[in-house]
């Protein structure tokens, strides 16, 4: 899973860079507009280590932001799973807040919290949280009639059991959504850093952009791609293991 993620990213990245090179040499553009392979390699050699640690810095905020989002999304999703007024209110609110571009909200966040760690964390969580919440709400609000009917009929249904049944029956969807939300959390952190932080890969991209350094930006994109591929690959592997563990009966093996 992990290696597949990485080589898939490498294929996409190589295709993107090849496309750029095709345009560069096809149209005859200078290194200022699109850097040549030599300049990209030279820049990468210079900044790769710095960008690696910047990415790790960004990833640490991403992971924390994602954990907060998952916790919040499951809490709210479970609370709002019933087709009650609260459930529909949460859904509408989530859709509405999701519609706001984060760049419009970011100034308010930065004025209130400054441009440090908290702002990055909040923006990462916000970008990651709402899509996650909508997925969790959708899953938790869909009854698994075949199974739930039995417990309801025998009077043994409790909310914890209901949540467990729905989570178990939608385990694939949930793990996919959680793994997918990693990219959102990473994107959120990078956006926050790009707008007004003083650390992380988004901040480095902003500096490269100020200096019209596309080679630097391409290097940063490469590093982000690799790091996020590894992280997502690990999440997917963990998800597979959880599924296997949950699906296998105690003391037995999965058929």
């Amino acid at each position: 899973m992990l290696f597949r993620r990485i080589y898939q990213f490498l294929i996409v990245y190589a295709a993107g860079v090849s496309g750029l090179m095709g345009i560069k040499y096809g149209v005859g553009l200078s290194d200022y507009v699109i850097p040549g392979p030599e300049l990209i390699l030279e820049t990468a050699g210079r900044v790769l280590t710095t960008y690696f640690f910047d990415c790790i810095n960004t990833l640490s905020v991403t992971i924390l932001g994602q954990l907060i989002s998952i916790f919040m999304a499951f809490s709210v999703g479970i609370l709002g799973r019933k087709s009650t007024w609260v459930g529909s209110f949460i859904k509408v609110m989530a859709y509405n807040i999701q519609a706001y571009p984060i760049v419009a909200l970011a100034p308010i966040i930065f004025i209130l919290l400054g441009d440090g760690f908290l702002s990055r964390l909040l923006i990462a969580s916000m970008i990651c949280y709402f899509p996650l919440l909508l997925s969790v709400l959708g899953i938790m609000a869909s009854p698994v009639e075949d199974i739930e009917h039995f417990y309801k009929a025998t009077g043994r249904m409790r909310w914890q059991l209901e949540v467990k049944i729905r989570a178990f029956e939608n385990l694939s969807k949930l793990t996919t959504v959680i793994a997918g939300s990693a990219t959102l959390a990473m994107a959120g952190t990078i956006v926050a850093e790009f707008i007004a932080a003083d650390a992380g890969i988004g901040y480095s991209i902003r500096i490269a952009l100020y200096q019209s350094d596309l080679a630097g930006i391409l290097t940063a994109l490469f590093m982000i791609g690799i790091i996020i591929s590894v992280y997502q690959g690990l999440l997917e592997t963990a998800g597979e293991q959880v599924k296997t563990k949950w699906s296998a009966p105690k003391g037995g093996t999965l058929i």
Binding site: S30, D31, Q211, S212
Partner: peptide, 8 residues
């Protein structure tokens, strides 16, 4: 910067 990178 543009001249440094060969722009005309």
């Amino acid at each position: 910067r543009a001249l440094d990178k060969g722009a005309d």
